[in-house]
Design a protein around this nucleic acid. Structure first.
Lengths: 108, 108
DNA sequence: TACAATATGTCCTTTTTAGGACATATCTCA
DNA sequence: TGAGATATGTCCTAAAAAGGACATATTGTA
């Protein structure tokens, strides 16, 4: 039963906070869209439509969370994304909030 | 700058994972809808429409995450919710996922 | 040589979600 | 006695999001 919950919650976090999960992935190493898609699918077990992913990556670049470099791999072009310091800050803030969530709530 | 991120991320987590945040609140002590609404607003800084909250509470009860007892407070009726063991499991699973997120990703 | 995989991108429709409107009733304080 | 807070509930519309279709091109493999 707890395992059913697991998949469900991971999927919800991944879908709703997809940008953060992508930043976390790219923080481990620079990556391009197609690889991110595959990583999200194998790591988190969540299918990501590329029609949602590529616009999101462009948005994250526009916001200054990512930068990209075009890389030639044979005749195919890869757009390799690297996380910026702003992106790292966003992830760090996220991590801090998670820590607080684990510490629990104190309600009067 | 990091403070701007903070509010934004807390709001996103609260809105997208509202049911989990509610379970976490009720886990600290039994609570009724109106109090939950106020707590979410003061604790998380997120406005929750009661038109979204009450149906959600009923759904969580139907799913077996919460049970309710009607409580008379003067002539007004309160529906006090208590978390079930199933609800606690859900929160615990969520906590475990958060812990793993903090431990980080290992990508080849 | 044909199909699957790699690689990136836009567009549109359907579904889902959010939030305010509608609805009712009690209590407290000025 | 009237307004604001407490308390719970449904309904509907408008906005947002998801996912598949459309679009193109290269590479590797059977």
């Amino acid at each position: 039963m707890a395992e059913n919950f697991r998949k469900e919650i991971v999927q919800r976090i991944t879908k709703n906070l997809l940008d953060i999960q992508i930043l976390r992935l790219i923080q481990t190493q620079p990556m391009w869209g197609y690889k991110i898609k595959k990583q999200v699918e194998t790591k988190f077990g969540v299918k990501v439509g590329h029609g949602a992913l590529y616009p999101l990556l462009n948005t994250l670049e526009q916001k200054g969370f990512l930068t990209s470099q075009k890389q030639q791999k044979g005749g195919r072009t890869r757009k390799v994304y690297t996380i910026t310091s702003k992106g790292k800050q966003y992830v760090e803030t996220y991590n801090n909030i998670l820590k607080e969530q684990l510490e629990g709530l104190d309600i009067k």
